[in-house]
Structures are given as C-alpha cells and as structure tokens.
C-alpha cells in the first residue's frame, strides 16, 4: 500500500500546477474562443452567433490599422534588432578590454519595464521639451522631429524605443553563439587564407542560423504581445495611429464593451503566435531528442 502511494507522490505533486495551467491557460483559451463566437458585449453571454465577430473584426478599420501597424512594427523591430544585435556582438567579440562594462550597458534596458522605457522616450522625443527643443537650444533652429505627434510616423517612434529596449538582448544571444564557435574552425579558415571579414561572412555568420531563429521567435513573440510600450508612449495615438492588436483587444473588451470582438481579436493574436512558436518548439525538442 505504502509502495503504491510512493508511486503516486510525484503525480500528486505535479497535479496542482498542471491542473492550474490546464484551467487558466487552456481552459481560458477555450472560454475566450467560445466568447468570440457569442454576442457578448459588456458582460459575457452565451448567445451563439458563429463567426460573426470575426467577420465584423476584419471589417473594422481599427483592426486593419492595428494589423498594418503590427506588420510595420514587427518587420522593422525584428530586422533592425537582429542586425544591430549581431553587429554589436561581433564588435564585442574582438577582445574588447572593457567588454564586461559595455555588455552591462547594452543589456540594462532589458531589466526595465516597458512603461519606464515608454516614459523616457515619450518625453525625449516630445517636440516641446525633448530632442527637437534641445537641438533648437544648441542653435540648430530648423531641426524638426515631430514623429511622435505625427499620425504617419508615430509608429516608428515605438520601433525606436522597442529596439533600444531589446537589441542588447539579441546582442547577448549572438555573443553567446559567437563564443560557442570552435576556435579551431577560425584557425582552419586562417590557414585557408580567409580574411577576418570573409571568415565572418562565409563561416561564422552562417553558423549563427540557430541564433537567428531563436531571436526571430523571441522578437516576434514580443512584437505581437507589445502593449505596455504603446500605452506608455502614445496611448495608441495620435488618434488611433499607433493602435496594435494588443491595445485593440484591450480597448474593445474593457472600454468599448464589445467583448465578443475583443475575444476574437485575442484568438487571432494567439493563432499568430502559435503558428510561429509551435513549429519552433517542435523542431527544438526534436533536435534535443536527436542529441540524446
């Protein structure tokens, strides 16, 4: 009897966490999925209306703005962060004497809340007191930088702040990757006569493929979820110019009393993230299993 109990202890220990995750993650996903097909407004109700919310969602101008913004933001953010991260990692990999200090500086934004980042950049880019004003003070009277107040350009200010926040992280990922390159491979390339530049272009950077992939997944995930930074910097404005799916979901659900539409937008976000994460995790786990 005691033996049998011992056998069950591990499962009993794991059970609360597992049940909790099952309910609050998967149960809630199902519930939100159900809500997205109901006529819920301020409060949830169970009046089934099929995919009407999705039809409505994709007919909404706000939603298409949000998707366009996500596309612009996501593309620039992922691209620039990756390139900058790799570039900085390569620079830092040249036996820099103060590497520890520089690495610490490049990475500290990652420790800060997006809200704080948002506040700093919001006022730094504010034409009235920030960069523009400062340039005027320095005597460059014609300098103009009003992007954050401009409907067409506000989204790019969010890109700037987001890159500031996460490029150091990408740098750290690439640096770890570069440090993992077998020294003998570099020596072999030197014996083959390759120059420093060529060694990076032909051998080391191609070896960073897995890091590019991880960075892509992490950054995509952050881009789709990005909410805090937009709220702190622009609040989705000016107008709705910096609306993103995450802010859209929040405002439709909690301030516009269109819970059904909000739920359907959340489901779309989930589909976007999972369509990238699941193949990635699957391949990671398979590679891991192969190694064992």
């Amino acid at each position: 009897m005691r033996e049998r109990l011992q056998e069950w202890v591990p499962r009993i220990v794991l059970a609360p966490s597992f049940v909790a995750v099952l309910i609050v993650v998967y149960g809630f996903i199902l519930y939100t999925g159900w809500l997205s097909m109901t006529n819920s407004r301020m409060l949830p109700n169970n009046e089934f209306i099929g995919l009407a919310n999705y039809t409505k969602l994709f007919g909404l101008k706000h939603w298409s703005i949000a998707l366009t913004n996500l596309a612009i933001f996501g593309t620039l953010y992922i691209l620039i962060s990756s390139v900058l991260g790799l570039f900085l990692a390569i620079l830092l990999d040249q036996q820099i004497r103060t590497e520890g200090f520089i690495r610490t500086v490049y990475l500290y934004p990652m420790a800060i809340s997006f809200i704080v980042t948002g506040v700093a950049w919001k006022w730094f880019l504010d034409p009235g007191i920030g960069l523009e004003n400062t340039m005027h003070q320095w005597g460059w009277e014609s300098f103009e930088f009003k992007w954050i107040k401009d409907r067409d350009f506000a989204i790019y200010t969010i890109v700037i702040a987001a890159i500031w926040q996460s490029s150091g992280y990408v740098m750290a990922m690439f640096l770890a990757g570069l440090r993992g390159v077998d020294n003998e491979i570099i020596k072999a390339a030197q014996v083959d006569g390759a120059s420093g530049f060529l060694i990076y272009r032909r051998i080391i950077i191609p070896m960073m493929r897995p890091v590019f992939l991880s960075a892509f997944v992490v950054l995509t995930h952050l881009a789709i979820k990005s909410y805090d930074l937009v709220v702190a910097m622009t609040g989705g404005g000016p107008g709705r110019a910096t609306e993103m799916p995450a802010t859209f979901m929040y405002s439709y659900t909690f301030t516009r009393n269109q819970m059904g539409v909000g739920a359907s937008s959340a489901i779309i976000m989930l589909i976007m993230i999972f369509s990238i994460i699941i193949p990635y995790l699957y391949s990671e786990i398979r590679v891991g299993a192969d190694k064992r």
Binding site: V21, V25, L35, P44, F254, M269, F274
Partner: peptide
C-alpha cells in the same frame, strides 16, 4: 512517468500565449 513529457510540453507552450487571451475569463 507516462505522459509527463506531454504535461511539460503543455506547460512550456503556456509560456508563450498572449495574455490578452486570458484577460476576460481571469
């Protein structure tokens, strides 16, 4: 135990959900 890898997979995947999806039921 049998199924523990599946449990881990489900818990791992849970790291990546957009939290917007749980706001209403939570």
């Amino acid at each position: 135990f049998r199924g523990s890898n599946l449990i881990f997979g489900l818990m791992l995947l849970a790291c990546f959900i957009p939290f917007q999806i749980v706001l209403i039921p939570m």
